[in-house]
């Protein structure tokens, strides 16, 4: 595959570099992990195979060989030769096709998977790109125009799907397969983002605690894969304490001295010394990752049991794609 245009930011990601926080290494990985898992499962990969995380529009990718692909996550307008493609569905593409990602109509990051996975070297057990340290992915950097991407060997199911699709191809250079995730919006929290109070929640005064669950915050333009800064009410009462540095997690809401909360995300540091007032529940991290600068975010408190229940629900949705039988390909 050849990158004709990289768009705003495109990186190779899998589900992250797990187990190295004790050595100071961020997990990285797909910001919306469930979308990458779904894309991988749709094309017959293991759910943790490497794919592309495509932020905002402008990406164009050319296929030198036929492939089975899936694009999940943000609702981009996708097209091959001007003909619209659906997301959350496995698609057979002929060699020479160019897939175009434009105008994210909803969400901010799309996940591209190809049968066989993106083949880059494994670094510390993962193919994820960690931009800050220049680790993993393609030479530790975002993709550029002209980059060639190799892919691994497609599994038997994907090979079969490609063969069937190739035979039933109509006039268009692609064919939709029957492998699809229905109602993908089930993976995304539609109401306020759920959190569990953090270790320093009670350090805030009552007014700030109340504001956190009633006010609307905005994703600041100074937001990236390391974290989202939230503008709106400043949580001033959280400051002033001398804290000893401790481990922080993806989804930890920290409040630096300025009072502007930060939701830490995939490329965050591993430890921090600012008050940790809240922890976004795992089930809602995908919804947060799909917010773009300027979007609004609200929070609501839940119990650990409720968070685990929400996680089981999301896992069941992704689980619908596991071990799914191949279905007959259909023409677009």
């Amino acid at each position: 595959m050849k990158v004709l245009a990289p768009g705003l930011l495109t990186t190779v990601q899998d589900l992250g570099r797990i187990g190295f926080a004790k050595q100071g290494v961020s997990p990285s990985g797909a910001m919306d992990g469930n979308a990458l898992r779904a894309a991988n499962l749709l094309v017959g990969n293991d759910e943790d195979a490497a794919g592309l995380e495509i932020t905002s529009g402008g990406m164009r990718l050319e296929f030198r060989k036929r492939a089975l692909i899936a694009i999940c996550g943000a609702n981009f307008s996708l097209a091959i030769s001007g003909v619209a493609l659906p997301s959350w569905r496995a698609i057979y593409v002929e060699d020479g096709s160019v897939v175009e990602f434009d105008d994210a109509r909803r969400g901010w990051r799309a996940y591209f998977a190809v049968a066989g996975g993106i083949d880059v070297p494994t670094v510390m057990g993962s193919r994820s790109t960690y931009l800050r340290a220049g680790l993993g992915g393609l030479e530790g950097r975002p993709l550029r125009a002209g980059d060639q991407l190799a892919r691994g060997r497609a599994g038997a199911a994907a090979q079969r799907a490609m063969l069937d699709s190739g035979q039933s191809l109509g006039p268009l250079p692609f064919a939709l397969t029957g492998r699809v995730l229905s109602n993908p919006e089930r993976l995304y929290r539609s109401g306020p983002i759920r959190f569990i109070p953090g270790p320093q929640w009670d350090m805030m005064d009552e007014a700030d605690r109340k504001a956190f669950v009633t006010e609307t915050f905005e994703i600041s333009t100074r937001s990236d894969r390391m974290g989202y800064r939230l503008s709106g009410r400043e949580l001033r009462s959280a400051k002033g304490a001398e804290l000893i540095s401790t481990a922080v997690l993806t989804g930890t809401v920290q409040v630096p001295p300025g009072g502007e909360p930060i939701v830490l995300l995939a490329d965050r540091q591993t430890t921090g010394g600012y008050p940790m007032v809240a922890q976004v529940i795992r089930a809602d991290l995908g919804a947060v990752a799909q917010l773009r600068p300027g979007n609004e975010i609200r929070f609501t408190e839940v119990t650990i049991d409720a968070a685990h229940e929400a996680l089981r629900y999301v896992e069941n949705v992704v689980g619908e794609l596991k071990g799914a039988e191949d279905r007959a390909p259909s023409r677009p």
């Binding site: 004790k22 540095s245 896992e315």
Partner: peptide, 17 residues
């Protein structure tokens, strides 16, 4: 999943499933 030691504590990441 992971144990992370810091100055005064160990943070244990686990799989709630």
């Amino acid at each position: 999943v992971e144990h992370i030691p810091t100055f005064t504590n160990v943070t244990v990441i686990y799989d709630p499933l």
